[in-house]
Design a protein around this nucleic acid. Structure first.
Length: 217
DNA sequence: ACCCAGGTGGCCC
DNA sequence: GGGCCACATGGG
């Protein structure tokens, strides 16, 4: 199957512009947001982040010291709030105890950082890669539900494709570039939020007419 | 009144 | 290694 990833990327860029984002400015906010957005709409995460900010809890150091109950009240709008409060606290405490600061952890080499993150309760592959790429600015291609859905809807790829396989699919075909990896993922999220929710693709989907498959669906 | 959302970990086979 | 399940709020 030919997927022309650069062609797809060009069309997304044309529609959405250059994104290169993670919604959040500081590394702390990116890590916290990455956990809060697990299986959750970002609009709900925004409410939780606003609550944390108001309570001066939008940092790994502050969360490591906060009471779980207070964290629960803040992160409630983002769903799974008991789990997320407990995990956020556990992750933050380990970062402070074992690395002294978030920067201490993030300064590990990329592959070691990823492995370390995966050892934290509440951080899986996608969250680990998001943190490596967006918080630490190191190479990691992020795969998420939007990515798999888009590749399935646009190119007919198996929607059951596993994380590691999909990740390798991209890293084998893209030039290794942090900025490209960041923006490519951002484009998939933007596409997923606005399109690719239905089959067939919407008439005005920027991914239309890229391949025979999307034309015929 | 449904259904889903930028996952993860536990348990079972 | 893979298939199921709990976890939870807010918006369409």
């Amino acid at each position: 199957m030919r997927t022309n990833l650069y062609d797809l990327y060009a069309r997304l860029r044309e529609r959405f512009g250059y994104l290169d984002w993670w919604p959040g400015d500081t590394a702390d906010e990116i890590v916290i947001g990455a956990v809060l957005t697990q299986q959750t709409a970002w609009t709900n995460v925004e409410k939780a982040i606003a609550n944390l900010k108001r309570e001066r809890l939008l940092s790994i150091a502050a969360i490591s010291r906060a009471k779980v109950q207070r964290l629960e009240r803040c992160v409630r709008p983002s769903g799974y709030y008991r789990q997320k409060a407990r995990r956020l606290k556990g992750i933050s405490a380990r970062i402070m105890d074992e690395y002294g600061s978030l920067d201490g952890l993030l300064s590990l080499p990329g592959t070691e950082l990823r492995k370390t993150l995966l050892g934290f309760h509440g951080i899986g592959k996608e969250t680990a890669d998001s943190i490596v790429l967006y918080a630490a600015n190191k190479m990691a291609f992020v795969v998420d539900a939007y990515t798999i859905r888009a590749m399935s809807r646009i190119y007919g790829m198996d929607s059951g494709t596993k994380y590691d396989d999909m990740q390798r699919y991209f890293t084998d075909r893209l030039r290794p570039s942090i900025r490209l990896y960041k923006d490519m993922h951002a484009q998939f999220v933007e596409l997923g939020k606005n399109y690719c929710r239905t089959r067939p693709l919407c008439a005005d989907c920027p991914a239309n007419r890229i391949c025979a498959y999307s034309r015929n669906m």
